[in-house]
Amino acid sequence: MSSLFTPLSLRSLEIPNRVWMSPMCMYSAAPEGPDTGAPTDFHLTHLASRAAGGAGLVMTEATGVRPDGRISPWDLGLWNDRQQEAFTRVTEAIKAHGAVPAIQLAHAGRKASVDKPWVSDRYVSEDENGWQAVAPSPVAYQGLPVPHELTEEEIQQLVRDFADSARRALAAGFQVAEVHGAHGYLINSFLSPAANHRTDAYGGSFENRIRFALEVVDAVRAVWPDDLPVFFRTSATDWLTENPEDEREGWTGEDTVRLAKELQARGVDLLDVSTGGMVRDAKIAAGPNYQVPFADQARNQAGIPTAAVGIITEPQQAEDIITSEQADAVFLGRELLRNPYWPQHAALALDTEPTWPDQYAYVVKRRKR
């Protein structure tokens, strides 16, 4: 049997295979009114169809832990009862197809309050349902306004916000909570010296820069059941230090290994390894498997299970990542947008029986003659 389609157990949760759906923002929630931030019928169809398509784990897009934590006014959030109730429909649909429902809890930090990407990259002002962005330091992401520098009191409130959203996620039926610590958003901007210029307990040394991330993880783990896993998504590098022509100091793969050890000690069960997003002009040599070495490095140097992401498009490519023990799972993004049934087709290509829903299976699955 294909390694890609063997179960993966984390704590008491068994995930049926290693092909997982990445969190991808759809910018399709109501931006105002009573349904602000709540998943819609579109989100229900979008996520449930990937579960029917054979993904072992289906993760929602970055979900704001508070209104001003969203990337855009059209993003999902989880800070009230109405949103929680709407998410319950989503988790039930994902489970009905045999997949594990997961949620990515997030705060966009200095990259918040922007337009839908297919419209523009511009900042959405406060009179357009936008808000002032916040960050560890008043350092703007290129093209966006200077953010408000968080006070220590505000930081502690954010820690509580993550915990509150995790409680709601559990009540809504999610089985995995992922803390979003990547792509230049709030937690990632605390980690990286490219964005964190603080001189208090949350800045300067490596230990201080990771403090907020660890406090958030501790708060989420404290309200999440001991028998269910917590993930952490990281940008393993800012792609600054690796470039000899770039004099800016950034977060590195070695930093990620150090962080991974701390996260695992605090109850994080899997590191979801991406890269980049801290600065617009970083030079990134993107290509198939270009981020996999960072998942490999964290897995085999820190001893933490990892998931690999980034231009993974072919069944054998994904299979080789698992069999070579570079990662324990793969997250697919754009490829699952192109083809929601990629896992079913990959199973066939790897000589494994697909798991079509019964309503499809009697027509499409292989039959003995």
Rank of each mutant, 00 (worst) to 15 (best):
M21D: 03
M21G: 02
S22R: 05
C25P: 02
M26A: 15
Y27H: 14
Y27R: 12
Y27G: 14
S28N: 14
S28K: 12
A29T: 08
A30F: 13
P31G: 13
E32K: 08
E32Q: 09
G33Q: 09
D35Y: 09
T36H: 10
T36Q: 13
G37R: 06
A38F: 03
D41W: 06
S49N: 15
S49W: 10
A51N: 12
G54Y: 02
L57S: 11
V58G: 04
T60N: 03
R66N: 11
P67L: 07
R70V: 09
I71P: 02
P73R: 06
L76E: 05
L78P: 02
W79L: 04
N80S: 14
D81G: 15
D81A: 15
Q84T: 12
E85I: 13
A86P: 00
F87V: 10
T88V: 11
R89A: 13
R89W: 10
V90L: 11
V90C: 03
T91S: 11
T91P: 02
E92I: 11
K95Y: 05
A96G: 13
G98R: 06
G98E: 11
V100W: 05
I103W: 01
I103P: 01
A106H: 05
A108E: 07
G109D: 05
G109V: 01
G109Q: 04
K111S: 03
V114W: 00
W118I: 13
V119P: 03
V119M: 14
D121G: 15
D121E: 14
Y123L: 06
V124C: 07
V124N: 01
V124W: 02
S125K: 10
D127S: 11
D127Y: 06
E128C: 12
G130L: 07
W131T: 01
Q132L: 06
A133S: 14
P136Y: 02
P136E: 06
V139I: 09
V139L: 04
A140T: 04
Q142N: 09
G143D: 08
L144S: 14
P145N: 03
V146I: 13
P147L: 04
H148W: 05
H148K: 09
E149C: 10
E149Q: 15
T151N: 12
